Computed example of a mutant assay.
Amino acid sequence: MTSAPIESDRRSFARTFTDLKTGFANHELWAHLGWQDIKQRYRRSVIGPFWITIATGVMALGLGILYSALFHMKIETFLPYITTGFIVWNFILACITEGAETFIANEGMIKQMPAPLTVYVLRTVWRQVLMLAHNLIIYVIVLLVSIGTLGSPYHMSEDNSGPLHPGLGFGMLMVIPGFILLVTSGVWVSLLFGIISTRFRDIPQVINSLVQLVFYMTPIVWSPDVLGERGRSIGHTAIQFNPLYHYVQVVRGPLLGQQVDWWSWVIVIGLTALGWGIALLAMKNYRSRVSYWV
């Protein structure tokens, strides 16, 4: 007779919001755990987490030189474009793939330490924020090299076709709300995918397969500016229905002095709100089961 009320109490938004509130309040715990994850990964390494920066920089430089030649793009504008795109994409990718294994990877702590589930999600996202901060060093270096071109209105293509971007200015400040939305979405993605993947262990493998396809459909190593008139029309339609493009663009655009379309902001804000709503419902219904599923 008493099992129903107890079960109902477990599946309540009150318990969900308490978990979130307590998790965010324990910032010293998840911040320390996230930093220790990076230190542990590069333990006994001479330059430690800066290997992240080197690997990303080498990849961006190699592909930037190659694709700028293939697509007839100006290297001084395309290299910052592909570098910034890689930095933001790596953050999104890690929040999706590592977020899906958030609770699985923390199985031991979940079973031994009574902590809110939000702590493990924030641990994962905070780790990605630290890695993003390391990678921003590459952006600063590339920006210093290309500031003469990006500091004024510019075209990305060698023949000066395509959109004319306004160049760096006070519009760079829009990267702040863009970054906040990106991190906020990283939390709900890790929370939602983490719960689903804990119940269905095939989900992480499915996600890893899909993100490879989405990467090539997202303007990271290519730019819509290089598409011809017909290709630009098709590409424009494709990227407008690609939510990851909009998440990349609200951060990359301001960093490169590009005007971000208002539609991108609408989609990002809308998806962030919708994602949090679904994540809260999943948290409400299945929060108490995660410890059994792991």
Results as ranks from 00 to 15, higher is better:
S3I: 13
I6T: 13
I6S: 12
I6F: 15
S8M: 12
R11Q: 15
S12W: 06
F13M: 13
T16R: 04
L20D: 05
L20F: 14
T22Y: 08
T22L: 12
A25Y: 14
N26K: 15
L29W: 11
D37R: 08
W51D: 04
T53E: 06
I54E: 08
A55M: 12
V58W: 08
Y67R: 06
Y67S: 02
S68Q: 04
L70K: 07
F71C: 05
K74P: 04
E76K: 01
L79I: 11
G85L: 00
V88T: 05
A94Q: 11
E98L: 09
G99A: 03
T102V: 09
E107M: 12
E107P: 02
G108P: 01
P114E: 12
L117G: 15
L117T: 05
Y120R: 05
V121P: 01
L122H: 03
L122C: 09
R123W: 05
V129W: 03
V129I: 15
M131E: 07
A133G: 14
N135M: 14
I137K: 02
I138S: 03
S146M: 05
T149R: 07
G151D: 11
P153K: 11
Y154F: 15
H155T: 03
N160S: 14
P163G: 04
L173D: 09
F179S: 02
I180E: 02
L182M: 10
V183Y: 03
S185H: 05
L191N: 01
F193E: 01
F193T: 02
S197F: 00
T198I: 00
D202V: 10
I203Q: 02
I203N: 05
P204R: 05
V206K: 04
N208T: 07
P219F: 07
I220F: 11
V221I: 15
W222A: 01
P224R: 07
G228E: 10
E229M: 12
E229Q: 14
R230L: 13
G231H: 08
R232S: 14
S233P: 03
I234H: 11
G235S: 11
G235T: 07
I239M: 14
I239C: 06
Q240C: 08
F241S: 11
V248Q: 08
V250Y: 01
V251E: 00
R252C: 04
G253V: 02
L255I: 03
L255K: 00
V268G: 00
I269H: 02
G270Q: 05
L271I: 11
A273M: 10
L274F: 15
G277C: 06
L281W: 12
A282V: 02
R287C: 05
R287H: 11
V294E: 08
